[in-house]
Every structure is written in structure tokens, then in C-alpha cells.
Computed example of a mutant assay.
Amino acid sequence: MIDERALLEALNSTPVVDGRPQDLWAGDAEPRRWAQEHGGPGDAPAIEWLRTARDVLQAATRGPVPEAELQRILAGARRLPEADASGLRWRLHVPPERTLAVELVLAWYDVLERRPGRLRPCGNDECRLFLLDRSRAGTARWCSMKTCGNRLKARRHQQRTRRDPAS
């Protein structure tokens, strides 16, 4: 099962490092590790579906939901209840190569339902990371106060002092 932490790892796999966009999932090693860590296959088709799901969810978190792409990922997926002595579980039925991609989409929707408006892009336009705002007030703006928050606050302070040297 993919939880909030795993969802953020996937969404944040395209950071900006030293001013240059990176894709940590460009090669196969990192998405294979991620897939296997979350109980999925690390083969090439599964990795391609994971990259596709990540890209679609990043776009959907930044703006309008690309419905056609989401439908392609979710095509034919269904959850069926299964009961045994330990209780009731919902089992996902989907082709094996799309299992983690579908679970990633389901985790994204779960976060949107349980924490509406809390999953968003970092407020720093130069950053490509996402945050899940867990603050009580729901006003978190940056992926990290240490990096993006301090950097933007320092930049604004410098701009104010340049405009108004008396302050």
C-alpha cells in the first residue's frame, strides 16, 4: 500500500538541484528501488507506468486534472471485497505492471479527499517539489522552510531594503 510519505517521494522525484531540473526516476535503479520497497515489481513495464502516473499526478496537483491520462492508468482497475477470519479487505485487481501506478493514483485521491487543499506545489516558483500541509491552520507554503522559505524571505527582505534604504 502506498502511503502519504511514498506519494510525496514519487511526486518529489523531479527536484531542482543547483538551479537545474533533475529526474531521479530517469534511470531504472531509483524507480525500481521505490517499486520494490512498496511491494511492486521493478520490471521495465511497471517502471514506465510509475513514471507516467507520477507525471500525471504532478500535473494534476499543479493545475487541471489530465482526465484522459488518468483514465488510461486506471483502465480496467477494480477493487473487490474479500473477507476472511481477520476481517474485510479490498483487493485491487489490475494488470501487474500497473498495480503500483494505480495504487499511486488511489493514494493521491485519498489525500485529496482526507486533506482537501493540503497537497500542493511549493510556493517557490523555482522549486518543483510538493508539500502536504499538516499544519493546523493549513497555511504552509514551502516544501521546506530551511531552503525555499528562508530563501524567499531573504530575497523579499533584500528587495525591500533596496527600495527603501531608510528601513
Score class of each variant (00 low, 15 high):
P15R: 02
R155F: 04
L92F: 12
A29L: 10
E97P: 09
P15Y: 01
Q22R: 15
R120V: 11
T52C: 06
A154M: 03
V111T: 14
E113D: 15
Q71W: 10
Q22S: 08
R51H: 08
L131Y: 09
A166W: 02
A46K: 03
R72C: 11
A154W: 03
C143L: 06
R54S: 03
G19S: 08
A35P: 02
N150K: 12
T61W: 03
T61L: 05
E69A: 15
S167H: 01
R155E: 09
L80V: 15
G117D: 08
G149L: 00
T52Y: 06
R155P: 02
E69Q: 15
Q159S: 13
E4G: 06
P66H: 11
L11W: 05
M145Y: 10
V16I: 11
W108M: 07
L119D: 00
L132P: 06
A85G: 12
L70G: 01
A35G: 02
R51W: 07
D164E: 10
R72N: 11
R114A: 15
R120K: 15
R134C: 01
T99M: 09
A75R: 08
L129Q: 13
H157Y: 00
G39S: 06
N124G: 01
P165A: 07
D110S: 07
R136T: 09
A53H: 09
A10I: 09
D55V: 08
L112W: 08
R78E: 09
V94D: 09
R120D: 04
G40D: 02
W142V: 00
V17N: 04
R156E: 05
L50C: 05
L50P: 05
I47N: 05
I2G: 04
A35W: 00
E30T: 10
P121A: 06
R91C: 10
E4Y: 10
Q36C: 12
D43S: 12
N124F: 01
P95G: 04
E103R: 15
A107V: 07
P31H: 13
R141Y: 07
H157K: 00
I73M: 07
R120E: 02
R33N: 10
W108R: 13
R79A: 14
F130N: 06
A68H: 14
L100E: 02
A6L: 05
S167L: 02
S86L: 12
G40C: 10
L131G: 00
C127I: 00
A60G: 11
I73L: 11
D43A: 13
L7A: 04
F130W: 14
W142N: 08
R78V: 05
L131N: 06
L11E: 04
L106H: 07
K146W: 01
R91P: 02
R91A: 12
L24H: 03
T139R: 05
R120A: 15
S144N: 05
P31D: 07
A101Y: 04
L131K: 09
R89I: 05
A35V: 03
L7N: 04
R20S: 06
A53V: 03
A137I: 03
P41A: 12
C122T: 02
P31K: 12
